[in-house]
Design a protein around this nucleic acid. Structure first.
Lengths: 367, 367
DNA sequence: TTGTATGCGTTATCAT
DNA sequence: ATGATAACGCATACAA
C-alpha cells in the first residue's frame, strides 16, 4: 500500500531553508530538484516524465509520479517557456472591455487558443496610443505568441504608420500581430486581419428599405476618423448609389460614432421637419436613442418612419417595436482570429459575412 | 552625434549563431548579455539600469540605454518573474464569457491589477469541474498571483469541499484564491470573497412593491443548487415575511435560473389565472421574457401587473415599459476583487450594496 | 560605481 | 533507460 503522507506544500522541503551565498532566495516552492531527490533520480528523468517521454522505465516513472504527488509539485511554466518554445500568452488589446460584443469576440478567441493550451491575456488600452504602446511592451516582455488589436481605430496615414511601428516592434520578439474587427491594412507587410462585412451589412439594410419603397433614407452616425464608422458610412454611400437613391447631405448629419451627438442630430432633423421616411443607425445603441426621440415626438416606428440598426445587440428584438438590424458574428470573428494564431485557418485577410435580421421596426412605405 | 544604426532585430547579434554543445538553442532574440557587450559593461550594470537603480553612473547608463535601443532589446519578463520581480498573472475564471456583466467585472479587475503591472488572464471553465481544475492547474504553472472564481456556482457541501481542495491546490504555488460575485464561504480558511447584496436587492424590490400596495407577488426563477438563485430566492422569502406578506407556493413556481423554464412557468401561471398583481424576476433576462408573455396575453404592464427585474442590464430602461430593476455595481465588484489582490482593500468579506432603479414597469395597485 | 559569481527551474544534448 | 552538464535570461550578494 502506498504511503499516505499529507504533504505540507510550502514547508519541509529538503533544501527550503538552505543557507546560501549568492543570488536571490529560493521561492520556497517545490521544484524539480526536490522531486528528483525524493524519487532518487536525476532532474533529467523527472523532466522526461513530465514531457511524457516514453523512454522512461515504468517503475521509475511511477516513483517519480509518486514523489511529485507527495511533494505537491507543480512544474514552473515560466521556466518552461524560457526554453525556447516561447510562452503561451496571447494578448487581446481592446480600448475598453465594454458590452457583449467585446465578450463575444473574446470568447471566440479563447475557445480557439485554449485548444493548444494558450492563455488569453486581456489588456485595456483606453483608446490611447501610449496605453497601446504600454500594452505592446508588456506583451513583448512576456514573449507573447500573438497580439490581437481588437475593434475600431482612428483612421488615416497616422494610424497605418503606427501599425507599421507596432509590427516592427513586435517582430523583435517574434510576436504575431493581428487586426480583429478592423479592415485589412495592406501597407503593413506581415500584418494579418479578420474583419466582418460592414459595407455589406449596410448595403443589406439599404436594399431592404429600398425594396419597401423608401427613397429618403437618413443616416445616423456619419463620422470620419473612426475605422468602423467610416466603413459603414462608405457602405451607405455605395448602396444608396447602387440603388439609385439620392444621397442628401441634409439627412446625413455629420456627427461622431458616439450616441449623444447622433441623438442630438436626429432631434434636430425631426424638429426641423426634415424629409425622410427611414433611418439607418450606424449602431444599435444609436438606434435605441432614435426610438426614444421618435417616441418623444409622437412619431410611430414603423408607421411614420422605419428604423434599422447595426450589431444586433441583446434585447434588440425585445424593444417596441422590435428592431430590424444587422447581426454580426462577433464570436466567429474571435474564433477566426484564434485560428490565425493556431495556424488552423487561411492566412489571407478574411471578411466575415453579416446578416440582416428583419423585425418590426421596418415596414413598407404607405402609398 | 549619435550613431544612426538601423538594427535588424533578430539577426546580426554577436552570439546568435554560435555553435554550442549542450542545452537548447538560443532563441535568436537579443538578450542582456548582448546589450552588456555592446555597451562594454557587465550584465549586472545592464540589470541595474533596467531596475532604475540610481547607483549607476550617468554616462554608463546612457551607454547602456543606447545599446538597448540599438539592439532593439526587450527584457524577458518570464526570466524576471522567475526572480520574483516581473509582472505576474491574475487568473479570471468564469464559466462563459457572456454579456455585459462579465465584461464589467473583468474591466474592474483589470483596472486594479494593471496598476501593479499584473496581467489579467481569462479562462472559461464551461461550468465544468474538470474545466475548472484544468484552468487552476494552468494558473499554478504560471505561478499566478491570484485566481478569481467569478460568478455563481453549484451550491452544497460538494462545492464547499471542492473550494477547499482548490484553496489547498493553489497554496502550493502561493496563489491567492478569491470568490467574486459569490457568497462568502467561511468553511474554507484563507478564502477571500467579494459579493454584492442579492438579498438586499430583492428586499428592496419587495418593499417597493409592498409600498405600492401589492400583496400577491409572484417570483420567477426560484431554484435550488445555484448560488445566486438561492440567494435571491432567500432574499425574497425573508423580505416577504418581513413585509407581512404571504409566501404562496402557487405563485412561486419552482424552476431553474434559466430563462426558458421561467417563461414556461409564467405562461402556465397566466393561463391558469393565478392570483397575483406583481412579479419579481430573479434576472432581467427572465423579466424580458415575462414582458413578452404578458404582451401575448394582452396584459398590460404595469396596469394589470407590475414587474421587477434584477441586474439592470443595458437597454432595460429602453423597453416598453421601462423595467424597474436592481442595479448591481459589477464594475465595482471587479475593482474590489482587484484591490484584494493588490492589498489595497480590506481583507474582510465584502458585500457591495445594490440599488433599486424604479422605472415604469411598476405602479401602485388600483383600489 | 562596477564586476564576479551564483542561483532561479526547466529542458536539450551528449554520454553512458 | 538514465545521468551529468550546459544552456535559457535575469537578478542579487558580495567583493573590489
Amino acid at each position: 500500500m502506498k504511503s499516505t503522507i499529507t504533504p505540507v506544500p510550502t514547508a519541509d522541503v529538503t533544501t527550503a531553508s538552505k543557507a546560501r551565498g549568492r543570488g536571490p532566495m529560493r521561492s520556497g516552492v517545490v521544484n524539480m530538484k526536490d522531486v528528483a531527490e525524493r524519487a532518487g533520480v536525476s532532474t533529467s528523468t523527472v523532466s522526461r516524465v513530465i514531457a511524457q517521454n516514453p523512454a522512461v522505465h515504468e517503475q521509475t516513472k511511477e516513483r517519480v509520479l509518486a514523489a511529485m504527488a507527495d511533494l505537491n509539485y507543480v512544474v514552473n511554466g515560466l521556466a518552461q517557456s524560457m526554453q525556447g518554445r516561447g510562452s503561451r500568452a496571447v494578448g487581446f488589446l481592446v480600448s475598453h472591455m465594454v458590452g457583449p460584443t467585446f465578450a463575444d469576440v473574446a470568447q471566440g478567441v479563447e475557445e480557439e487558443v485554449a485548444k493548444l493550451g494558450d492563455l488569453l491575456t486581456i489588456i485595456t488600452t483606453h483608446a490611447d496610443p501610449s496605453g497601446e504602446m504600454k500594452a505592446l511592451q508588456q506583451m513583448r516582455e512576456q514573449r507573447a505568441r500573438a497580439v490581437l488589436l481588437v475593434g475600431a481605430s482612428p483612421t488615416g496615414q497616422d494610424y497605418e504608420e503606427r501599425l507599421r511601428k507596432y509590427q516592427e516592434f513586435l517582430s523583435a520578439t517574434d510576436t504575431q500581430l493581428i487586426l480583429c474587427g478592423h479592415q485589412h491594412v495592406s501597407s503593413v507587410p506581415g500584418l494579418q486581419s479578420v474583419d466582418y462585412d460592414n459595407i455589406g451589412g449596410i448595403r443589406a439594410a439599404v436594399e431592404h428599405l429600398a425594396a419597401l419603397g423608401h427613397r429618403r433614407i437618413a443616416y445616423l452616425g456619419a463620422a470620419e476618423g473612426h475605422s468602423t464608422a467610416e466603413q459603414r458610412l462608405r457602405g451607405f454611400e455605395l448602396a444608396m448609389k447602387d440603388s439609385g437613391l439620392d444621397l442628401d447631405p441634409a439627412i446625413i448629419p455629420a456627427s461622431t460614432f458616439e450616441v449623444e451627438p447622433c441623438e442630438a442630430a436626429l432631434e434636430n432633423l425631426v424638429s426641423t421637419g426634415a424629409d425622410f421616411t427611414a433611418v439607418i443607425a450606424a449602431r444599435d445603441e444609436i438606434a435605441v436613442r432614435a426610438l426614444r426621440v421618435f417616441r418623444n415626438h409622437g412619431l410611430s416606428v414603423p408607421d411614420d418612419v422605419s428604423l434599422v440598426g447595426f450589431d444586433d445587440m441583446p434585447f434588440m428584438g425585445d424593444l417596441t417595436p422590435a428592431l430590424t438590424t444587422v447581426r454580426v458574428p462577433y464570436r466567429e470573428l474571435g474564433r477566426r482570429a484564434g485560428m490565425l494564431i493556431t495556424d488552423s485557418g487561411p492566412d489571407s485577410p478574411q471578411v466575415l459575412p453579416v446578416e440582416l435580421v428583419v423585425r418590426a421596426s421596418t415596414s413598407a412605405l404607405h402609398e
